[in-house]
C-alpha cells in the first residue's frame, strides 16, 4: 500500500507511543496489584472490599475514565499520563482479583506442609505460594496486556492514543488504509504481548504443562 510507504515515520511514531502507553501500565499495575492481592488473602476481611472496588473500577468505560482523570489528578487533558494512569487502574483492578485468586488456589495442605517443614512466612510466600500461583497470575496478565493494547487507541479521542491516531485520521479523510494499518498493527502487538507472556510462563512453570494440567 502506498499509504504505508508515504507515512512510515508517522506510523512508527504512533506504534512507538502505543507500545509505551500499553506496556508501562501493565508493569505498574502488576507492581501495585501483587501486594494488594496478597493483603486480600492474608487479611480475609479485606478480600471483599478490595475485590468489589476492583470490579466497579473495571466496569467504568475507558473513555469516561480518560476524560475525568485530568480533573482528579491535575494533569493536562493532552497528557499521556492520563492514559497511563487509567490503564494502570484497569490493570490493578483486574490483577488484584487474579493475584488473590491465584494465592487462594494454592492447596492449603501444601502451605501447611511447607510450614510444618520449617518455612517461615516470607520464604513460604516466595518459595512456595507465588510459584504455584504463577500460572493463574500469568493467565490474568495475558488478559490485562491484550486489553491494554486495544484500549490505548481510544485515547486518540482526547489526542493521545498511539495507533488510535490512525483511526481518527482515516475517519476524517474518509480513507480506509490508515484504519486497516492501525487495526493490523494493534492486533499484532496484542498477539506479540500474549506470545511473550506464554513463553515466559513455559520457562517459569515447566511443571504446569505436564500431566494434562494447565
Amino acid at each position: 500500500m502506498d499509504y504505508i510507504a508515504n507515512n512510515v515515520d508517522l506510523i512508527l511514531a504512533a506504534l512507538g507511543q502505543h507500545v509505551v502507553l500499553a506496556i508501562v501500565p501493565v508493569i505498574l499495575g502488576v507492581i501495585i496489584a501483587l501486594p494488594l492481592g496478597y493483603l486480600a488473602v492474608r487479611y480475609r476481611w479485606l478480600y471483599h472490599p478490595l475485590i468489589n472496588v476492583s470490579g466497579l473500577l473495571y466496569a467504568i468505560p475507558s473513555l469516561a475514565l480518560f476524560v475525568v482523570l485530568p480533573g482528579i489528578i491535575g494533569t493536562r487533558i493532552l497528557s499521556p499520563i492520563n492514559i497511563i494512569a487509567a490503564l494502570t487502574i484497569y490493570t490493578v483492578a483486574l490483577m488484584v482479583r487474579v493475584v488473590a485468586n491465584g494465592l487462594n488456589s494454592v492447596d492449603p495442605t501444601i502451605t501447611q506442609a511447607a510450614s510444618a517443614m520449617g518455612y517461615r512466612r516470607v520464604r513460604r510466600l516466595f518459595g512456595v505460594e507465588l510459584p504455584i500461583a504463577l500460572p493463574v497470575i500469568l493467565a490474568g496478565l495475558r488478559v490485562a496486556a491484550v486489553s491494554n493494547v486495544s484500549l490505548v487507541s481510544v485515547g486518540a479521542l482526547i489526542g493521545v492514543g498511539g495507533l488510535g491516531a490512525l483511526f481518527t485520521r482515516g475517519l476524517q479523510l474518509g480513507y480506509i488504509d490508515p484504519i486497516i494499518v492501525g487495526i493490523v498493527l494493534s492486533v499484532l502487538l496484542a498477539v506479540l504481548c500474549d506470545v511473550i507472556i506464554v513463553l515466559v510462563q513455559r520457562q517459569l512453570t515447566p511443571w504446569s504443562r505436564i500431566g494434562g494440567r494447565s
Partner: peptide
Amino acid sequence: RRIGYVIQHAGLFPH
C-alpha cells in the same frame, strides 16, 4: 525442620 511431617495427600510441592 527437626521433625518429619507426613500428611494425607502427601502435600507435595507441584512446582
